[in-house]
Design a protein around this nucleic acid. Sequence first.
RNA 1: GUGGGUGUAGCUCAGUUGGUUAGAGCACCAGGUUGUGGCCCUGGGGGGCGCGGGUUCAAAUCCCGUCACUCACCCCA
Length: 441
Amino acid sequence: MAQKIEPRIFKGARDFLPPQMVRRNYVINIIKTVFEKYGFEPLETPTIELWETLSGKYGEEGDRLTYRFTDRGDREVGLRYDLTVPLSRVVAMYPQIPKPFKRYQIQPVWRADKPQKGRFREFYQCDVDIVGSASMLADAEIIAIIYEILQILRFEEFTIRINSRKVLSGMVEVSGAGMEKEFDIYRAIDKLDKIGFEGVAEELQKLAIPESAVGKLLDILKIEGTPAQRLDTAAGLLAGSAAGQQGVAELITLFQYLSRYEIPGSCFAFDICLARGLDYYTGPIYETVVEKPRIGSITGGGRYDNLIGLFSGQSQPATGSSVGLERIITVMEELEMFPPQLNTSTGVLVTVFNEDLLPYSIQIAGKLRQAGINTDLYTGASKLRGQFGLANDKNIPLVAVAGPDEQAQGSVNVKNMASGEQQTVPLDALVEYIRSILSGD
RNA sequence: GUGGGUGUAGCUCAGUUGGUUAGAGCACCAGGUUGUGGCCCUGGGGGGCGCGGGUUCAAAUCCCGUCACUCACCCCA
């Protein structure tokens, strides 16, 4: 035998074994169902994009973290960094797509990052976006979807933080710090939660911003009161900036719309410190944070009215959010939010008593499968003991035994693995019996 | 890219001031139970201590190097 190859996996990438996949699919199905309930339609795009498509969209950091290589034809290509840029490319390539275009997309993305807790190099994102609507209603739809998904998944404590890039740029404009340092300033502001006002002040000073500008920025950041009051105050402080004023006006409209959806006010908040890292945002930005496991944001997004224009030459308003599947799963695992018994997709294992009785077992499995019951027919070589062991290891809730006695009377013996109870049921009643156990419990 | 931590059976880890054939739990295999698992009992297989070098009569235990993994920063889902 040749020397064994040490089985290893690429750092930051993962295998999802069946018990994990069942849970992942559970979450994905809920997300997908809500997306479709709100009238969004599916889209998929290639893993690999031309480098020119990906580069320069996310900012310096984003470029650095994008997997990049040359293919055999010496073409510069990369693995997609997110799902928003590919969407923008698609919208520009297919102008005939009816607008507003509401699409959702659930696919993996890649980042050449150092893996950490809740952080991978290959991971799934679930994006929902609306292209072709400049209305705050589009942003409200996105936020409503996020709320509903988290609700159905039974998240109890989370906050959807909302801000606007226009408000932020208005702040920079009014402060006199200089627009060329805009993004650096955002990054500093974004750290407020972690490093506090003093920390932010230090960060800003490092950027060689005039003392007076630092003071003005901090004054704005320190606005207090209810969301409405803070927006009001912000409007006053940003009076000198057209962008800032427009940003505030948009947020006021957005919050008005949100109040029309049935979202409790405690679940979302105007947060002037929210900045978000990507360069392409132009309007409202939002992200969801949970406190319980300190894992950062579980969703993130915003409006990007100029991105599509980079591909089509004609700008197109767009807004949307990414729902972070991996982090949602991490939180749900840690808080034990998954329904119990969510370990297998199989409902029943049909055993094979011996070679002679195999036809009978096949017949039984066929009957169950025809009825739409997920049925495993044992294909191994073990005796009944081993077959029960397998059902146990795989968490299959029911085992059907069809031995000589059962065959003689045209029945099947069904064992409930959780309770240990067994019952012999006639073949005609089998489907109904198993269905009732699997659904009811 | 920067800093810290760890590397002993498939997994989680223990291994006293360096000293005889390196341990436990879980997992795995077999039997107790040739129509039934999960519990229990009995027995068994499996590593030579990430790798390379050094010190020593003697190293998993000390030193140097190297690799890998991991946590944090940065940034982000």
